[in-house]
Amino acid sequence: MDPEHPGKDPSGAEPSGPDALLDEALAGLSREIRSRVAGTDVEGIDWFGLFDELRERTRMLGMRERSGETDEFGMDPELLRRARPLFQALCESYFRVEVSGLGAVPEGPVLFVANRSGLLPYDGLVLAHIVAEARGEEARPRPLVADWLITLPFAQPTLTRLGAVRACRENAERLLRSGRSVAAFPEGLKGAGKVFRDRYRLQRFGRGGVVRLGLETGLPIVPVAIVGAEEAHPVLFKVESLARAVGLPFVPVTPTFPWLGPLGALPLPARWSIRFGDPVDVGALGAGMTDDELLVSRLNERLRATIQAMVDTGRRARSGVFR
């Protein structure tokens, strides 16, 4: 809800954000009219100036669906507040997300590591929403998103305002060091581009960036298995010849995508389950271990195997994809 402004409005009527803005704009307008009318006869009024003023002031109202300030990575709390019911419906009615193991996640900044699927980052946004609902807005993990997606026209402004951040070491480190959680999807493009027959087969975890980050910051890594997201966007096959023209790394063909146009970007209503594993405290090994390439790759592979095992358990536990 909007914060109350006691004492500001003696009549006590509608102190909420947009209305207050409207009141302010109208009051300013009437002041403007009075100042222009005073001392002149009706013919002398600058009607064009007045019209311009009205236009300027109404245009200011375009600010009401966004906050005037964003955080340092461009997250817009006002948009998140407005999008909350949508995410709520998406999680509860559409994907019917089952969450388990969230209690074991430690307080404070953590590094969530999850399996990735689908071209659009529904998995990251849903994960962020679920953690934010359970632990409060300060605990909201920021999903790390690949370059090609965070610079994609139309996706870029929305994703940034919903809290997504370009996946790179500098950004993740900055977020973690300022006490915020991060959700990483180390499969990267390989994960996003999995075709349907490869679903839930975790791809290589990059070059161990996540493990290195855990070692350097000393923060716990929480493995997360997201089951269901990989059926929400089943990629039947990929068209690579078209990719350059569209500006995507590949053009996915799903049962809905090119056929239904933009509607095809909507996910299928698969039943999701998100399980949080036990935190892995690699920080105990010490920051100096990042130079030990073998250790990093061993930890990296172990992390991948853990998430793979959790994904397999989750798939066995469910009764069907959509039920």
Binding site: M60, G62, M63, R66, E69, T70, G74, D76, P157, R161
Partner: peptide
């Protein structure tokens, strides 16, 4: 920092 759209709208 501010998004370009917010800058222009303000």
């Amino acid at each position: 920092v501010l998004p370009l759209s917010t800058i222009l709208r303000t």
